[in-house]
Write a protein that binds this DNA or RNA. Structure first.
Lengths: 330, 330
DNA sequence: AGTGGCGATGTAAGCCTTTGCATACGTAGA
DNA sequence: TCTACGTATGCAAAGGCTTACATCGCCACT
């Protein structure tokens, strides 16, 4: 920096000002300094900057698990947005509640953290609240007040999915095969499923709303039980994610039941799998990349303006009709 | 830090030493300082540290594209290893060759960068070489000399796959349906495919070794052409990745050809898709998580010991036999 | 008893920026 | 012509840490 200052015949203070508040410096001087910067290939030292300003252009993102395309899509959107705004993204594959987690160990050198919480986690939640950095929460409804959040609006897609099912299946024949009971998304989807069905005249009981995990295996197993109980009458299944839906397809195949003829299946997430299957899986699209981008955008907004009121972004879900659901009645 | 020093009745220098070179400090003093650190919840300022030591505990990882589980698996392994060694991981979804890429923009505050290069990219390569940080290259054979590299040993898996195919298909009936011609992996796999077949008595021509892209669609299309030319005789296909393999399965299904009866198919990568398909896809497993971990390990080794000779880690691939290939002859 | 050396600790310089305050100059208004 | 103010720039402190060098006991040796 000193070299630049010398080359441009100014003080280091002016060089700094050219970089940080150009409006304070005379245009000709600024131009001269810029040239010197170019010529010497000067790049400010990030550490010194951080030391002075106590800010960094680093954002953390903590996911329950970077696994599968679901999260990679989220990461993709988040990274794109961060980059667009001149930030870098630090990842943590485990939203751990101990020191080894991002929150604990990155404390102090990230400007903020986006945390994805898919299940209640008191310890982690406490740790986040006590951290000094700004943060936003992804996909979690807890700790609602005064916290920036980015959510998936499961209601829209779920409602549409149920109505789509009801186009060709009786309400009593509709099932929801969810993921883990504690999972926020599954929980919401289950509730909206039940509510929508109730509005349409049939309150489903616990045999119609099932919880397990997000695996093909669970879908296969649960699908088998449901089909066994259905006695061949056409049924509709809304799954908690695409893998479960695929499991249900497998269960139907086991019994030689045609999909969508005898069993209409709708997945959730619209992962790659949904497009690959034959017949193509009707599913509810969840815009993960947008969720990631929105989270980063919200985080940066908070960093730039700490006093702003807490935001809550809801990204819409959307039913994507493919081959595993009967077409709506004409 | 000053507070800690005061609380432990030592100087800040001693506090620093306790943290960085405990062997220089008397055990009792160290204990006293540690207590003070605990009590006051002191955490060293990363920026100040970086300013002094010109080092950071940040590692960059640049991928061609963080997309799909292939890369997310890599990232997972890399992050785990980085965390284990007390580093943080900065991601870049695009290994761009301009300023906006990780290499350009993170220059100066990462201790090193792992770059994944799946195709030749002169500009990026040049940029990397000129960067001041240490770096390791993933999956790329270029710029061989003096550079740390982590590679996938495609040979083992490809050879095994070909031999597996030859267990029930004539050499003239074996095909390779690859991804992009320039892609390092596809290129290697194609070569080993051809070599192995040659050793077994049949040099394949360009009709038997095809290039396209890594998509289901290409597999479908190319598989269709191959099957059309095969006149119903049993054939074997080694695909450049699992998606292509799936495309070929689709092509077989179009023609009502049984898999593995009439068409034996082997994929590459062992992605989730391979386990989900029915029949299960025989495929060559590529240990992506290990690749990521090895890359980070190599990077840290280089950082710790800049003078060490360049390393080259080769992770083995392994044939995983499932349902789409005929069982080997008894 | 005197000295050399070693282990433990303190002192203070320096790492590179940012920024509050001071300075210098020029201009407009009185 | 003088004052007052605004604009462009410089000066220097501060930010938290590491580390070379200095210091100080203390023990072992001559």
């Amino acid at each position: 920096m000193e070299d630049v200052a010398k080359a441009a015949a100014v003080s280091t203070a002016t060089v700094s000002r050219v970089l940080n508040s150009p409006e304070l410096v005379a245009p000709e001087t600024a131009a001269r300094v810029q040239r010197a910067i170019q010529d010497l290939g000067y790049r400010p030292n990030v550490f010194a900057q951080g030391l002075m300003t106590r800010k960094s252009r680093l954002l953390g993102i903590a996911l329950p698990d970077i696994h599968g395309e679901f999260y990679s899509e989220l990461l993709r959107g988040a990274d794109a947005e961060a980059r667009r705004q001149g930030y870098h993204l630090l990842i943590s594959s485990e939203a751990r509640d101990d020191e080894s987690g991002l929150i604990g160990s990155a404390a102090g050198f990230v400007a903020g953290v986006a945390v994805m919480l898919t299940e209640p986690n008191e310890a982690l939640w406490k740790q986040i609240r006590e951290a000094s950095e700004p943060f936003v929460v992804i996909d979690s409804d807890i700790g609602a007040a005064g916290v920036d959040r980015v959510l998936v609006d499961n209601a829209i897609g779920t409602r549409d999915a149920v109505d789509h099912l009801l186009g060709s299946v009786k309400p009593e024949r509709c099932y929801f095969v969810g993921g883990p009971r504690e999972n926020f998304d599954t929980e919401q989807r289950a509730r909206v499923f039940a509510d929508t069905l109730s509005e349409r005249g049939h309150r489903p009981d616990e045999r119609h709303v099932r919880f397990g995990d997000y695996s093909v295996d669970w879908g296969h197993r649960c699908g088998g039980e449901i089909l066994a109980a259905a006695n061949g009458e056409p049924i509709g299944v809304l799954a908690g994610n695409d893998e479960i839906a695929f499991g249900v397809m497998l269960a139907a195949a086991d019994r030689g039941l045609n999909v969508p003829g005898k069993v209409r299946i709708i997945g959730f997430d619209d992962t790659r799998l949904a497009t690959l299957l034959r017949p193509g899986l009707t599913t509810v699209r969840v815009p993960m990349a947008q969720v990631g981008a929105a989270a980063i955008a919200a985080l940066i907004a908070r960093i730039d303006e700490p006093g702003r009121p807490a935001s809550c972004t809801r990204l819409p879900t959307e039913l994507v009709v493919r081959g595993t659901s009967a077409p709506a009645k004409p």
